[in-house]
């Protein structure tokens, strides 16, 4: 009895901290965003009454619908490339000897210590007309004159993949770590070849990692506005650019808020799918 009473203050402090965090830094901002999205644009105070759904209506403006769809396409392409690189990468990583594995993961994480903005500028130097890549290709005789690499959609995709690849690899690495070797052997033992084992055992068992990776890549890929700003020539390539422009340039807060809510809902949908796939594996509610 004495013990549990003594532990109460600590317990309370932790709970207050957690709930306080969630309340003030997660719930409150989101409520503000939802609130802003249903208010009216006001050039001097940013937002004002009356409440209306104009901002949401504006989302269906073909112009913005196009941006959203194009953004989705860019993000999907980024995610696909990350998945195609990340999946075999994570698989190989999980099979490397343990000590080497730690080193490789460390190397994977090192870039996080540098601000992603700085890293994007570094990429700009590589892709520029007289940048590293063009000089290298020219001195190798592959091309005669500098190719236009920068300020293309391709450059934006490269930038997004570069920044987001670790977020695909890490959750995949974690599911491959959990993938037991004897389960694969059992599949072979029961008559399944490499492809059948991959299809029937490896893919279903790594699906939660794939979905987690997709969640961590797809959404940021739609929002990382500074990548098109730096590498894509400041066009409205991503939803993130639209949102940023509405808040900082066009001063249309309700519309910016509505656009970011669409992103949040997309995220929620993905998380729901992820939960379903995990439940299928019996990792929850056993």
């Amino acid at each position: 009895m004495m013990r549990s009473i003594k532990q109460q203050p600590f317990r309370a402090a932790v709970l207050v901290l957690v709930w306080g965090w969630l309340l003030f830094l997660v719930l409150a901002p989101n409520i503000l965003v939802v609130g802003a999205s249903v208010m009216t644009r006001n050039p001097s105070t940013f937002i004002s009454l009356p409440l209306n759904l104009d901002a949401y209506r504006q989302l269906f403006n073909p112009l913005y619908l196009d941006v959203f769809l194009h953004s989705l396409y860019m993000a999907a392409l980024t995610t696909l490339i990350c998945l195609l690189i990340g999946y075999p990468f994570a698989w190989a990583l999980s099979r490397v000897e343990k000590r080497r594995q730690m080193l490789l993961i460390f190397l994977l994480i090192v870039p996080f210590w540098t601000n992603s903005l700085v890293r994007t500028y570094a990429l700009k130097l590589i892709l520029a007309t007289n940048g590293l890549l063009n000089s290298a290709l020219m001195s190798l005789g592959v091309i005669d004159e500098p190719a236009q690499l920068l300020y293309t959609e391709g450059a934006v995709i490269v930038g997004l993949v570069y920044l987001l690849l670790p977020f695909m690899i890490l959750p995949l690495y974690s599911v491959f770590e959990d993938l037991r070797q004897d389960v694969l052997l059992a599949s072979h033992d029961l008559g399944a070849g490499r492809f059948a084992t991959f299809k029937n055992v490896v893919v279903p068992l790594t699906l939660p990692g794939v979905l987690a990776g997709v969640m961590l890549v797809l959404l940021p890929a739609m929002g990382l506005f500074f990548v098109p700003d730096i590498l894509g020539g400041s066009r409205n390539l991503l939803v993130g650019n639209v949102i940023k422009n509405q808040f900082l340039d066009a001063r249309n807060w309700p519309f910016g808020a509505a656009a970011s809510i669409v992103l949040t809902l997309t995220m929620a949908l993905l998380m729901f799918a992820h939960r379903l796939s995990k439940r299928r594996l019996g990792e929850e509610g056993a």
Binding site: L185, A186, A192
Partner: peptide
């Protein structure tokens, strides 16, 4: 001969059932 072409089957130490 690879395991998938051997007419033998194995019961693994930790069962190795397919969890999904």
């Amino acid at each position: 001969t690879p395991p998938e072409h051997r007419p033998l089957n194995t019961v693994f130490q930790n069962y190795a059932l397919f969890p999904h």
